[in-house]
């Protein structure tokens, strides 16, 4: 849930989402859900000469599973807090996976 929680704080910020098909879309993050599906607004494709068909697209919904990277605005990330959140997540007994690894 950490990533969901994290991405929620980025709503309203400009991010660049790199997809697994090498398409990179820059836009304002409008919404994200627990599957990390992403909604972007005012989008612009990074290499728009290569993807002319994306020129007319103004906003989009990206399925979380096709995302390779998300480039974040550094100013909107509180790394110390993120570390704390990661620690809390690791402590939680419910997060079976991470827990069993750490112990």
């Amino acid at each position: 849930m950490l990533f969901y929680s994290f991405f929620k704080t980025l709503i309203g910020h400009q991010v660049t989402v790199e997809l697994k098909n090498d398409l990179a879309i820059t836009g304002v993050l409008t919404s994200v859900d627990q599957f990390l599906n992403i909604k972007l607004d005012d989008i612009r494709v990074v290499d728009d000469a290569k993807y002319p068909h994306m020129m007319a697209v103004k906003n989009c919904f990206i399925r979380g599973s096709v995302v390779r990277y998300v480039q974040l605005p550094a100013s909107a990330v509180d790394t110390a807090l993120l570390q704390d959140a990661a620690r809390r997540e690791a402590q939680q007994p419910t997060t079976g996976g991470a827990h069993s690894i750490s112990r």
């Binding site: 849930m1 950490l2 969901y4 929680s5 994290f6 929620k8 704080t9 627990q34 509180d78 807090l81 993120l82 704390d84 959140a85 809390r88 997540e89 939680q92």
Partner: peptide
């Protein structure tokens, strides 16, 4: 039920604290 939690600070710590700050 996927989003529900008895402690928002436990599951949604980053968001809660970040927005609070």
């Amino acid at each position: 039920s996927q989003l529900v939690t008895d402690d928002p600070y436990a599951d949604d710590f980053y968001y809660q604290v970040y927005t609070a700050i």
